[in-house]
Design a protein around this nucleic acid. Structure first.
Length: 273
DNA sequence: ACGAGCTCCTGCTTGC
DNA sequence: TGCAAGCAGGAGCTCG
């Protein structure tokens, strides 16, 4: 489940392996892997072929290579991977030749790549994606104000990439656990101090996860060289159903949330008022 | 404008 | 043993 930490680990790997290289050739092996692109996969191939790769940028969970006229953008979705370490496989969707093979694999095909113009340094389809907590443009006070102005469950607000980007189901649950907030609490029911605490917890837990190389539950998330992260060892709430809360020992519970799951400590994370 | 719900997709796990 | 249902979920979309 690539969220900001996993995408950042991939970004660093890609920057190391692709910077200074040229796209000698590219083949789209699965048409669905090219999405949001204004044209067929053949146009995508034509646009990026020959491009020089200088740096890799990221906002939230989106990655892009700035090219002279457009950005080459990628999103890993649920199961996307970039690999520079081997041969194409059954889930390879796009194959680049940058002197060495650069492989975009995606088992569940929720991810994809496209090329599009940039406005103010940001690909056009990412204009509505808010800065993530590590972005110089991140405005903590503004995000606190937005969350406190909404009545939706605070977890839904944390996951809304238009408010603050990069947070997914894993790090939302971890941040809520760290700040001792029940995921269903309406944003408007939280104090400004508590929302700030929650945002700082999200930032802190994601920073630790980057250091750990991200969270790898299975082979669906690995770095560009195939190595796994190890932050799953440090998860306090997410996926920890029936296991003791690291703070108080109460078994973590799993609850349905928007057709998925939410994990919390029933003692540390109670609804207030 | 907001919030809830649905859809896309594959493969592993669970239950009858 | 086999089949079906459940589950994982990011992001864009529709609907009320």
């Amino acid at each position: 489940m690539p969220e900001l930490p996993e995408v950042e680990v991939v970004r660093r790997g890609l920057e190391h392996w692709t910077t200074g290289r040229d796209i000698v050739d590219v083949q789209v092996l699965h048409p669905r892997a090219v999405r949001r692109h204004a044209g067929p996969p053949s146009d995508f191939e034509a646009v990026v072929r020959g491009a020089h790769l200088s740096e890799v940028r990221r906002r939230g969970k989106f990655l892009w290579w700035p090219l002279p006229d457009v950005a080459l953008v990628g999103h890993l979705g649920m199961s996307g991977q970039f690999r520079v370490d081997g041969e194409p496989g059954e889930h390879t969707r796009i194959l680049f030749d940058i002197g060495v093979p650069l492989i975009f694999d995606d088992q569940r095909t929720f991810g994809g790549m496209w090329a599009e113009p940039m406005v103010d340094g940001l690909p056009v389809s990412l204009q509505h994606i808010a800065p993530d907590p590590f972005d110089p443009h991140y405005d903590r006070r503004a995000v606190v104000r937005i969350i406190r102005g909404r009545r939706a469950p605070v977890k839904a607000l944390l996951l809304d990439q238009g408010i603050v980007s990069g947070i997914g189901n894993i790090y939302a649950d971890e941040a809520l656990w760290q700040a001792r907030v029940h995921w269903r609490t309406p944003g408007a029911a939280l104090s400004a101090r508590k929302v700030g605490e929650l945002l700082d917890a999200a930032q802190e837990v994601m920073a630790r996860a980057v250091t750990a190389g991200g969270t790898s539950f299975d082979r669906l998330y690995v770095n560009v060289n195939g190595s796994s992260g190890y932050f799953q060892r440090d998860l306090a709430a997410y996926g920890q159903q029936d296991l003791p809360c690291p703070r108080c020992g109460t078994p973590i519970v799993r609850e349905p949330f928007a057709n998925r799951s939410s994990f919390r400590c029933p003692r540390c994370q109670r609804m207030r008022r």
